[in-house]
């Protein structure tokens, strides 16, 4: 870690490592002047001759243009020839740890509703692709959640083909697992998984690998066919023997996500619609009956 020390710019003191992502590590650090904490993501350039990677430039550009209460804000950018450090506001707790630390408060239906609303209200302008409880930070006192998107997001209308792996299988939408074209519905799927997890405090899908994730998904939501998902046959999964694609006993969403009110189950089912074209949009989800008495 020697290389960190000489370039921390004296402005920030590096503390412990708090996460690892696709591009590099995330550190907790202290702003020496303001005496506040921040998190810092160091992005090493793999091909130095290409300069700053396009994904980083796009990420920074987007974060600079964004000012949303439910997104962790970008405070500072430090750079060097071999890397860029992105300095973000810091929150102690992520949603995954929050659920583990506060099993009772964390299951409060009104809190779940509020958190879900906050997550959705940010997500219709941006494609995150990596939403999971560990990437959602919680301000425990203020009851605010903020998406910590460390530079992977892109604006919804950006035309570039997405080729690299972005998400852990347990939170991945089916069209991602089977490699179809994707867009914002993938975020809604992930938010649906997070919604269910906030209710039960257990991941909805464990998905160790892509294949088991697909099996879990189809077991819970049914095997898609050309009627429920036109074009599904072109996605490269063999649907001729649907039984081979499910495992265990068929259960319904309300069996698995116990304790969620009926309007919540309805919203969840619409968020977890296998066919991305029929999946509910963030805009429509925000006016769903589930939020009416919030």
């Amino acid at each position: 870690m020697d290389y960190l020390i000489d370039t921390m710019d004296n402005k920030y003191e590096q503390l412990e490592t708090i996460g690892r992502g696709n591009f590099g590590e995330v550190y907790k650090c202290r702003d020496r002047e303001k005496n506040t904490f921040a998190s810092m993501k160091r992005i090493l350039f793999r091909y130095q001759d290409d300069g700053v990677p396009g994904s980083v430039i796009r990420g920074v550009a987007l974060l600079k243009e964004l000012d949303h209460p439910n997104i962790i804000s970008l405070l500072d950018v430090l750079d060097d020839e071999k890397w860029v450090d992105l300095v973000f506001e810091y929150l102690e707790m992520d949603l995954w740890r929050f659920m583990g630390t506060y099993p009772r408060i964390g299951k409060d239906p009104n809190l779940t509703k509020s958190f879900l609303y906050q997550i959705l209200s940010d997500s219709y302008r941006i494609l995150h692709r990596n939403l999971k409880p560990r990437n959602i930070m919680v301000d425990v006192d203020k009851k605010i959640v903020k998406i910590a998107d460390y530079g992977l997001a892109r604006p919804v209308d950006a035309p570039v083909a997405f080729t690299y792996q972005v998400l852990s299988p347990g939170y991945k939408a089916p069209e991602l697992l089977i490699d179809a074209k994707y867009s914002t519905p993938v975020d809604i799927w992930s938010v649906g998984c997070i919604f269910a997890e906030m209710v039960t405090h257990h991941p909805l899908f464990n998905g160790q690998c892509e294949h088991t994730a697909i099996m879990e998904m189809f077991s819970l939501l049914g095997v898609p066919n050309v009627e429920t998902w036109p074009g599904v046959t072109s996605l490269g999964i063999n649907l001729s023997n649907p039984e081979a694609l499910v495992s265990g006993v068929r259960r319904s969403l309300s069996d698995v996500v116990k304790g969620l009110e009926p309007t919540g189950i309805d919203l969840l089912a619409q968020m977890l619609c296998l066919n991305p074209c029929r999946r509910i949009t963030a805009r429509d989800a925000l006016i769903h009956a589930y939020f009416r008495n919030a």
């Binding site: 700053v52 430039i57 920074v60 550009a61 600079k64």
Partner: peptide, 15 residues
């Protein structure tokens, strides 16, 4: 490249 982005204070958004 890095100098230009510093001058722009990393405001490189084009939306």
């Amino acid at each position: 490249e890095v100098a230009l982005m510093q001058v722009l204070d990393f405001e490189v958004g084009t939306s």
